[in-house]
Structures are given as structure tokens and as C-alpha cells.
Amino acid sequence: MNPDDDLARALAFAPPTDPYVVCWRDLDPTSTTEELERLADWVTWATTRYTLDHKVIPACWPHHGAIVEELSALRTFWESSYQPDAAPSEPLAFHRDLTLALRRLRDWTSLLGCTRTTHRPQAGS
């Protein structure tokens, strides 16, 4: 995959018209793959937009359930914050909660021990 194509897609990213909450526990394997691809588009956009590095979101994030759950929740909040009927304060609420989520992501990533180039599977994975 060409990094320039990823960047172009990330910068052109727009929220879908109907945000929805994903319950990862209830997804079948096909739906999980589809949702991970959809989430990956948003993560690419967010890491570019907010200049997030591997210490916050490691490249292997799809292999870590807690990180997937956090990123999915953030995406849902972001999508709902930018809907036409959203309150004008919703983007600020998203950014307030983003600060807390980034702390959690840093903590989880630090505990996992994954690096920019190396994935460390979690115990029991």
C-alpha cells in the first residue's frame, strides 16, 4: 500500500451520515473484518490529523482489544459530534474526552510493549 495514498485518504476523510455504536463482542468474523477496515480508515485520518505516533496508537492496534474498543468509541463520538443536528458544543466535548482517551491509549500501549516495528502479543492471545 502506498503511504501517499493513505495520506490522501486520511486528509479527505469525512464522517458517514449515520454514526452507530459497534458492539465488537457480538460481531461475527466477517463483520469484525469489515468494521476493522472501517475503523482503520478513521484511525489513519485521526493519527494524521492529531499527529499521533506509535506510542499512542501502535501499528498493531487491531490486535489489541482494549485499543480497538477505545478507538471505536472515539470514532463513534467524533462521527456523532459532526452531524448536522449535533449541538455546537459537541466538537468541544469530543476534544475534552479525546484528551482522556489519549492518556488511556498511551498507558495501554506502554503496558503492551509494542514498538514501531514489533508487535508483542498479549498474554492469552
Rank of each mutant, 00 (worst) to 15 (best):
L98R: 07
E69I: 01
R106V: 10
D28C: 12
H95A: 02
H63G: 15
I57R: 00
P16D: 09
R38E: 00
A14C: 06
E69Q: 02
T109C: 01
A10V: 08
H63S: 15
L111C: 07
G65W: 13
A59D: 08
A87K: 10
I67P: 03
R104K: 13
A8G: 03
R75T: 02
Y82H: 07
L74T: 04
S72P: 06
S110P: 08
D85Y: 03
A46F: 00
V22Q: 13
Q122L: 14
Q122F: 12
R104T: 11
A8T: 03
R103L: 05
D4G: 10
C60D: 14
H63N: 15
L27I: 13
T32Q: 15
E90L: 07
P88W: 13
L111H: 11
T48G: 02
D41P: 01
L98C: 06
S110Y: 11
S31H: 15
F77K: 00
A59V: 10
A40D: 00
V22S: 06
R75Y: 03
A10C: 11
W42I: 02
F77P: 00
E79L: 06
T30Y: 14
H63K: 15
N2D: 14
P62L: 12
L71D: 01
L36P: 05
L100C: 09
I57K: 06
T51C: 04
E37H: 11
P91V: 07
D53F: 03
T99M: 02
F77G: 00
A8R: 03
E70H: 06
L74S: 06
T48R: 00
S89N: 15
W45S: 13
L74A: 05
E90A: 06
S110N: 13
P3A: 14
H63Q: 15
A10T: 08
A14E: 07
R25Q: 10
R116P: 01
L71E: 00
R49T: 14
G65E: 13
L27Q: 14
D18V: 09
D28I: 11
I67T: 07
Y82K: 07
L100F: 05
A40F: 01
T30L: 15
E69H: 01
W24F: 09
D85E: 08
A86I: 10
L111D: 12
A93E: 05
Q83G: 04
A93V: 12
H119A: 14
L98P: 00
W45F: 10
V68S: 00
E79F: 04
L52Q: 08
A12N: 09
Y20I: 05
D107G: 10
D5H: 13
T47G: 03
R104I: 03
E34P: 09
S81G: 12
R120Y: 11
S31C: 15
R120A: 12
L100S: 04
V21E: 05
D5E: 10
W108Y: 10
G124S: 12
A46P: 02
L52E: 06
T17G: 07
T115A: 12
P88T: 13
A101N: 08
D85N: 06
L36M: 11
A66Q: 01
T17C: 06
D28W: 12
D5V: 12
P3K: 15
P91W: 11
V22F: 07
R38I: 02
R103P: 05
S81L: 15
S31A: 15
A123T: 14
L74P: 01
I57G: 01
V22N: 09
W45R: 06
G124R: 07
Y20C: 09
E90W: 03
D6F: 12
D4E: 08
